[in-house]
């Protein structure tokens, strides 16, 4: 009752179950290859590592090696000096990250074709990777300008990126919880196999009454209790007796959740959060460099 038979999370076990002579062997093996590609496995970290490695040393190394004294005494404008430092790094790293981000696109599309929820790959390919790298670059530049030493600034930047990622994840979960769930699957009568719409995320269960009205699990239990169905024992978490009674009286179990289209709505918020962090940290770093002692 937890998902379709094409759930990619079952791929490894399916692959293991299929013997080399079975007809399922080749598809299962093919899926195992697209499920965990190394490129996508690296994508959660890549924009942050690249952004920090590019951003931190720009100011921190100059302050650490005291070369900032020479540079800032020669360049009338520290902003123009920093822009000159920043430009070649952005010119090298930007296209590099973009290449990896867009190369990961088809890989993610392959996974989605197998029923994998595309929203789970959000931020692992496409423009969001670039925006995350931009945010990490801004954070790196900022921590470098604050700390003035490369290694501590890198560690602080990594901690800030991790906190940002965790906080964004929490906000995303809260946002998802606020979405009105839709029916993504319905149990057929007489206990057949439940088929859940592909690329969807299950958030709960409901019942459909014989008159077509959706009722909550608790409400359905109250109806069953009123009809004399005994309350479940402590070890009966699935409340089998109520389920059997409801099924026999025309009620249908519904699997509710959010579809991929709904979950992908987070992409714009994700881009806004990381973009805002980049847009704030970058000018702040410029401001700090203008005010800082070399």
């Amino acid at each position: 009752m937890t998902g379709s038979s094409r759930d990619p999370r079952d791929a490894k076990s399916a692959s293991a179950r299929c013997g080399s002579g079975d007809p399922c062997f080749m598809p299962a093996k093919a899926f195992s290859m697209v499920k965990d590609p190394s490129l996508l496995a690296a994508m959660p970290l890549l924009p942050f590592v690249v952004g920090l490695l590019g951003g931190v040393p720009l100011v921190a190394r100059e302050l650490e090696a005291r070369t900032a004294q020479t540079a800032w005494s020669l360049f009338p404008s520290r902003a123009s000096w920093l822009a000159r430092q920043l430009a070649p790094v952005a010119l090298v790293l930007g296209p590099g990250v973009a290449l990896a981000a867009f190369a990961a696109g088809p890989v993610a599309a392959d996974r989605a074709a197998w029923g994998w929820s595309a929203s789970l790959d959000l931020g692992l390919h496409g423009p969001l990777v670039l925006i995350r790298a931009f945010a990490a670059f801004g954070i790196g530049l900022f921590t470098g300008a604050v700390v003035g030493r490369a290694l501590p600034a890198f560690l602080l930047g990594a901690a800030l990126c991790f906190s940002l990622l965790t906080a964004t994840g929490l906000v995303r979960d809260a946002w998802r919880a606020g979405l009105a769930p839709v029916v993504i699957g319905e149990a057929p009568p007489a206990g057949g196999e439940v088929v859940v719409a592909p690329r969807s995320i299950t958030t709960g269960y409901e019942w459909r009454a014989p008159d077509g009205k959706r009722i909550s699990f608790q409400e359905a239990r109250r109806i069953a209790t009123a009809a004399g169905v005994p309350l479940p024992r402590a070890n009966d978490s699935q409340d089998v007796a109520a389920a059997v009674w409801l099924d026999a009286h025309g009620y249908r179990l519904l699997i509710v959740g959010i579809t991929d289209e709904m979950a992908l709505g987070w992409a714009s918020y994700d881009a806004a959060i990381f973009g805002a962090v980049g847009l704030i940290s970058l000018p702040t770093a410029f401001w700090l460099v203008r005010r800082r002692r070399p």
Binding site: A65, R66, A68, Q69, T70, S73, F75
Partner: peptide, 16 residues
């Protein structure tokens, strides 16, 4: 600072 730096040459204590 830009106007000042444009008119000043500086040699730091340790060659940087």
């Amino acid at each position: 600072p830009a106007t000042v730096v444009r008119n000043v040459g500086y040699v730091p204590q340790t060659a940087s």
